[in-house]
Simulated assay, not measured.
Amino acid sequence: MGGTEHLTVERVGATLVLTLNRPEVKNALSLPMLVGLWDGWVEADQDDAIRSVVLTGSGGTFCSGMDLKALADDGRLDGQQYRARLTADPDLHWKAMLRHHRPRKPVIAAVEGHCVAGGTEMLQGTDIRIAGESAVFGLYEVRRGLFPIGGSTVRLARQIPRTHALEMLLTGRPYSAAEAERIGLIGHVVPDGAAREKALEIAELINASGPLAVEAVKASVYETAELTEAAGLASELERGWPIFATSDAKEGARAFAEKRPADYRRA
Rank of each mutant, 00 (worst) to 15 (best):
R129N: 10
E133Y: 09
R144A: 14
P148N: 10
Y140C: 05
I149F: 09
L146T: 00
Q124A: 14
S134A: 11
S134M: 04
L139H: 01
L139S: 02
Q124S: 15
T153R: 15
R144G: 02
G151C: 10
V142S: 06
R143K: 14
L146D: 08
E133S: 13
L139Q: 01
G151H: 12
G125P: 12
F147Y: 15
G150V: 08
L139W: 02
L123K: 07
Q124T: 14
G138C: 05
T153N: 13
G132H: 01
L146V: 03
R129A: 09
Y140L: 13
T153Q: 15
F147E: 15
G132K: 00
S134F: 04
D127E: 07
G145D: 08
P148D: 12
A131P: 00
G132I: 00
S134L: 04
A131Y: 03
E133T: 08
Q124P: 01
L146N: 03
G151V: 09
G150P: 08
V136I: 15
P148M: 08
T153W: 08
G150S: 14
G125I: 11
G145N: 05
V142W: 04
R144Y: 14
G125T: 11
S134T: 10
Y140T: 04
A135R: 00
E133D: 13
G138E: 06
F147G: 04
V136L: 11
G132Y: 00
I149K: 08
I130T: 01
R143N: 15
V142H: 05
T153V: 15
D127F: 06
A131K: 01
